[in-house]
Every structure is written in C-alpha cells, then in structure tokens.
Simulated assay, not measured.
Amino acid sequence: MVSSGYRHLLFDWGDTLMRDIPGQSGPMMNWPVVQAMPGAAAALQLLSQRFTCHLATNARDSDEAEIRQALVRGRLDQYLTRIFCFKQLKVEKPAKAYYQQICVQLDCPGTQILMIGDNLHNDVLGALDAGLTACWLNLHHGENTHGVQQVENFDMLTSWLLSGLE
C-alpha cells in the first residue's frame, strides 16, 4: 500500500517519540527531565497536517492523562489525537488484541493504520501480525532480517510518508 492510503499513524512512545531515560521510574510526567526524540516534533508537526496521529504504548506506570502531561512537557501533545495505553486496553503489544482494539476504537481497518516504532518485535511485527501496516524506526541500525519497511530517522519517515502527496 502506498503511504497516501493511510488514515491514521500510531507512534510508539518510549524511545520513539520520547526518550526513555535510564534510571527513571514511575510516570514520565514526574521525571525531572523529559526529552522528545530528535526530529520527533518536526515530523509530527508535518505529518499531523496529513494524517491523524496517535500514541500507542505499553507503558504501565502512566494512564492517558499522565501520558498527555508528559507529552505536554515534551511539546508533542498538540500533534497526537488519541492515546492508547496498557491501562486503557488491558493488554500489551505485540498481542493481536492490542492492535485489534485500536482498529475498533478508530473504526478503521488495519490496512489504513501505520504503526511506527523502535521495537521490531512489539511495534512492527506485532502490528503486522494483527493486520496493520508498520514501519520500523531503526534508529540503531539493527539488521532487518524480516525485510520490513524501515526508516533510520524522522526525516526519512516524513519524506517517505509525504512523497507523492503534494
């Protein structure tokens, strides 16, 4: 499917949109420092003009409101419409049920939803197994032994998703 066929973009949270800082625990909104990943804000600003963007996370320490507050601190909140988290869905990625609940809540077939994340197993292979499309944000240049769609940074993601849409 060409990128213009996507209605919704789902982004992972930790180490995809916001840095998961080692040694920190509890809800991210309470961490002394929160950091958006390099390029995340600029990509979301552009992509949210063409797609409805959402967050999909396995974080167990935070509910939707707490996640939203961390996103406010990271200056990413205004680009994300819905937040899907463990406390809401009661299941974790890569379970099919996690992604299937999101499809139901968005009232959208999985083929029109692109999951973007840094974890090949949970974010990408899990989404593909559930019938969504997926893109691996391969920031650490891991070996792509599964032949999945991948990008190495947010600039590449934005270029790929917006190519041919002008």
Rank of each mutant, 00 (worst) to 15 (best):
S3I: 00
G5A: 15
R7G: 04
H8F: 10
L17M: 14
P22I: 08
G23H: 10
S25Y: 10
M28T: 05
M29S: 14
N30H: 15
N30P: 05
W31F: 01
W31E: 00
W31H: 15
P32K: 12
P32I: 07
P38E: 05
A41M: 14
A42L: 11
A42E: 15
L44I: 08
T52N: 05
A56H: 02
D61Y: 11
D61K: 12
D63M: 10
D63W: 09
E64W: 00
A65C: 02
R68C: 03
R68I: 00
L71Y: 03
R75L: 12
D77R: 08
D77Y: 03
L80W: 05
I83M: 05
E92N: 09
E92C: 10
I102W: 13
V104G: 01
L106P: 08
L114K: 07
M115A: 11
I116T: 02
I116N: 01
G117C: 10
N122Q: 12
A130G: 05
G131I: 04
L132H: 07
N138F: 06
L139G: 11
H140P: 07
Q150P: 04
N153F: 03
N153P: 06
D155M: 08
M156K: 09
S163K: 10
S163M: 02
G164P: 13
E166L: 13
